[in-house]
Simulated scan of single mutants.
Amino acid sequence: MAKIDELAELLVDELNDFKSALDKLQEVNRDLQSIPLKPDTSDMDKSMRDFISLQGQIFKEHQKSTFDLSRKLGRSNSYPNWFIALFLIFLIAFFTITGVCIYRLDRISDTNTMYFKKGQESVMEHFNTFLIERPEIDKAFQEWQTNQNK
């Protein structure tokens, strides 16, 4: 039983120590509650204002350089002037040569028709002259022609 009494006494001492520690904590808590605590954010506000100002300046510089670049690109030519002039000369020469070739091709068919008619007339004249000069061949030709028509 002596041990139970010792344990009970030890437990009572521990409870008293716990109660005194709890009382001290409550007193410290009351003291902390009574102290007015106001956080100072002025340094943070100043840093934020400086950062926002710096970002504004960077944005303005970026906007200005973008505007300058777009203006320069708008004024620049994709191709040099000499290249455009050379290309136009090439186009004019191409269309001129194409037009002349088409005109000549059209004239060739007219010329061919004219020479064909001249050649046909010349052959017929030569053939008729041949038949007039050689009556025996003319007679044989006439007989052959009649046999062909039957």
Score class of each variant (00 low, 15 high):
residue 1 M to G: 15
residue 2 A to V: 04
residue 3 K to F: 09
residue 5 D to S: 10
residue 5 D to V: 08
residue 6 E to S: 09
residue 7 L to K: 00
residue 8 A to S: 05
residue 9 E to W: 03
residue 12 V to H: 00
residue 12 V to E: 01
residue 13 D to L: 10
residue 14 E to F: 00
residue 15 L to H: 01
residue 18 F to A: 10
residue 18 F to Y: 09
residue 19 K to N: 00
residue 20 S to N: 09
residue 21 A to C: 06
residue 21 A to S: 14
residue 22 L to W: 05
residue 25 L to T: 11
residue 25 L to E: 14
residue 26 Q to R: 11
residue 26 Q to P: 00
residue 26 Q to M: 06
residue 28 V to D: 11
residue 29 N to Y: 10
residue 31 D to A: 15
residue 32 L to E: 11
residue 33 Q to A: 14
residue 34 S to R: 14
residue 34 S to F: 04
residue 34 S to Y: 06
residue 34 S to T: 04
residue 37 L to P: 01
residue 39 P to S: 02
residue 41 T to I: 14
residue 42 S to E: 15
residue 42 S to Y: 04
residue 42 S to D: 14
residue 43 D to F: 12
residue 43 D to K: 14
residue 43 D to T: 12
residue 44 M to K: 14
residue 44 M to V: 06
residue 45 D to A: 09
residue 46 K to V: 09
residue 48 M to N: 12
residue 50 D to Y: 07
residue 51 F to R: 11
residue 51 F to C: 11
residue 52 I to H: 06
residue 54 L to M: 15
residue 55 Q to Y: 14
residue 57 Q to R: 15
residue 57 Q to V: 04
residue 58 I to P: 00
residue 58 I to V: 13
residue 59 F to C: 07
residue 59 F to L: 12
residue 60 K to D: 13
residue 60 K to E: 10
residue 63 Q to P: 01
residue 63 Q to M: 13
residue 63 Q to V: 03
residue 64 K to H: 09
residue 66 T to W: 07
residue 66 T to P: 00
residue 67 F to T: 11
residue 68 D to R: 11
residue 68 D to L: 06
residue 68 D to E: 14
residue 69 L to R: 04
residue 73 L to I: 03
residue 74 G to I: 04
residue 74 G to N: 12
residue 74 G to C: 11
residue 75 R to D: 08
residue 76 S to W: 03
residue 76 S to T: 02
residue 76 S to F: 04
residue 76 S to Q: 09
residue 76 S to V: 04
residue 77 N to L: 15
residue 78 S to K: 09
residue 78 S to V: 08
residue 81 N to T: 04
residue 81 N to D: 13
residue 82 W to G: 06
residue 84 I to K: 13
residue 84 I to P: 02
residue 84 I to S: 03
residue 85 A to R: 07
residue 86 L to D: 07
residue 86 L to M: 12
residue 88 L to H: 05
residue 89 I to H: 06
residue 90 F to Y: 08
residue 91 L to Y: 07
residue 93 A to M: 08
residue 93 A to L: 15
residue 94 F to R: 07
residue 94 F to C: 13
residue 94 F to D: 05
residue 95 F to W: 09
residue 95 F to T: 02
residue 98 T to N: 13
residue 98 T to P: 02
residue 99 G to W: 04
residue 99 G to L: 10
residue 100 V to W: 05
residue 100 V to D: 01
residue 101 C to F: 05
residue 101 C to L: 12
residue 101 C to G: 06
residue 101 C to W: 06
residue 103 Y to S: 02
residue 103 Y to R: 07
residue 104 R to G: 02
residue 105 L to R: 09
residue 108 I to D: 07
residue 109 S to L: 15
residue 109 S to E: 11
residue 111 T to W: 10
residue 114 M to S: 08
residue 116 F to P: 02
residue 116 F to I: 05
residue 117 K to F: 04
residue 119 G to C: 07
residue 120 Q to M: 08
residue 122 S to W: 09
residue 125 E to K: 13
residue 126 H to W: 13
residue 129 T to C: 11
residue 130 F to V: 03
residue 131 L to K: 01
residue 135 P to F: 02
residue 136 E to W: 03
residue 138 D to T: 01
residue 139 K to H: 06
residue 141 F to V: 03
residue 141 F to M: 11
residue 141 F to C: 01
residue 141 F to L: 08
residue 141 F to Q: 07
residue 141 F to N: 05
residue 142 Q to N: 03
residue 144 W to I: 03
residue 145 Q to I: 05
residue 147 N to F: 10
residue 148 Q to N: 05
residue 150 K to H: 12
residue 150 K to P: 02
residue 150 K to R: 15
